[in-house]
Amino acid sequence: MSIPLFLKNIKNNTLLLLVFAALMSIYLAVIIYIYDPNGIGAMVDMMSILPTKLVNALGFGTIDSGLTGFIASLFYGFLIYLFPMVYCIILANRLVAKWVYEGSFTSLLCTPNSRIKIIVTQGIYLLASIGVLFTILFLVGYGMSEHFFPGMLDVKVFLKLNLGACLMTMTIGMFCFFFSCLFNSTKPALFFGALIPVGFFILNTLSKLSERTAFLGKFSLYNAFDGLAIVTGQSSISLISGGFAVFIGLLFAAAVGVFSLKRLPV
């Protein structure tokens, strides 16, 4: 890994990270703030006004009465797919395809650093920044819960929730990164980088609509992460994490391989 390049990435992309961290933190904070330990009923009432299918599709189908479950269903059920997805698409494009397209990547390669070293640095930054994003979310969630409802948050489960979501986002990020490494121009890199996660998202949403569409979920990566199942202990976090980690490793290796052999444009 190249330290100066890593520092440059931090400098270039911190604002982007902060914007997304702030947006997601505000959402999380508001969700924790509106939690009412005595009457989850109001929320359920509100949901009952909406068509059941829509509620299911949004992932709000079952609302757990505990604080952790409440956060898991409202925040880690739906929003967790959208915001990090957009972050991954933008960041992956900025790290590789944009510089390659503009030609400034050449000035990186005209230093005594191998292609592999440089592209690994870019990939590590992507993973590290997603890690930071979820660390911030964890801290905000923990802080808000302790402030408003001391002792009610199951910290261990909340940590598992964040770990799972973090690894899932990293996998999505690596998909985007792979396409960013594959293409020499930003347009196809953005198109395919967005197509895959948006496709996963649509499949996941459709699969929750009815029994007959449930099979679509099998093709979606997002289906592997079910916040509520983690809270209830139905799914094993180590299994999920392991699966995501394998995906991340494979995609990273593929991205590095593709980049180290390709022809860079003039």
Binding site: K8, N12, E102, G103, S104, T106, S107, L109, C110, T111, P112, N113, S114, R115, K117, V266
Partner: peptide
């Protein structure tokens, strides 16, 4: 061995593309 070569090579490209910001 591009990175080893770059240690001792100076390259002026035709189209200059630098980090503008």
């Amino acid at each position: 061995r591009a990175s080893a070569i770059q240690k001792n090579t100076g390259y002026v490209p035709e189209d200059v593309a630098l980090f503008e910001n």
